[in-house]
């Protein structure tokens, strides 16, 4: 059956497509370091969607108004705790304010687990959460 499927280009396309779609969501459960990032995992309306995070960016000891630095849609994504976006925001602020300390912390509350904080350090020296 598999040999027959793989004997044509269309069959090979089907096999790769189905395999990728079956396995890609596993990445969320097995390998993704960011539990808030549910992209490509078909986790519509999951409990994680109810997560609320409060990202705080402090530049040289002064809290930053994220709304003045980034579009509100990005601030909203950061409010869902998505690490890649928060890391990119940190990198952006580090570039904009060179030689400054950009301390980032995220406080998240969950529906199904205890609140948790992430970060809390200078993202210009440690750029990943």
């Amino acid at each position: 059956m598999l040999k027959a499927l793989l004997s044509t280009w269309a069959g090979r396309f089907i096999a790769v497509f189905v395999l990728v779609q079956l396995l890609l969501p596993l990445h969320y459960y097995l390998a993704r370091k960011d539990p808030h990032d549910e992209r490509f995992a078909w986790r519509m309306f999951s409990p994680m969607r109810m997560t609320r995070c409060q990202p705080t960016f402090v530049i040289d000891g002064k809290p930053t108004n994220l709304g003045a630095e980034f579009h509100e849609a990005w601030v909203e994504v950061a409010g869902r705790g998505r690490f890649t976006v928060i890391e990119a925001m940190g990198a952006r602020l580090c570039a904009k304010y060179p030689k400054s300390e950009v301390r980032v912390s995220i406080d998240c509350t969950y529906l199904d687990r205890e609140p948790r904080s992430y970060g809390g350090y200078d993202m210009c020296t440690v750029p990943l959460l």
């Binding site: 779609q21 549910e38 995992a41 078909w42 309306f45 999951s46 409990p47 109810m50």
Partner: peptide, 28 residues
């Protein structure tokens, strides 16, 4: 088949106490 895969993973994502006891859906 792609739709079937979507439904399967969507169902798996709901196999947690926070969904099964109705807390998640209540908030949504």
């Amino acid at each position: 088949v792609q739709l079937g895969i979507l439904y399967l993973w969507a169902a798996i994502s709901k196999m947690s106490p926070a969904w099964l006891d109705g807390r998640t859906i209540t908030g949504q």
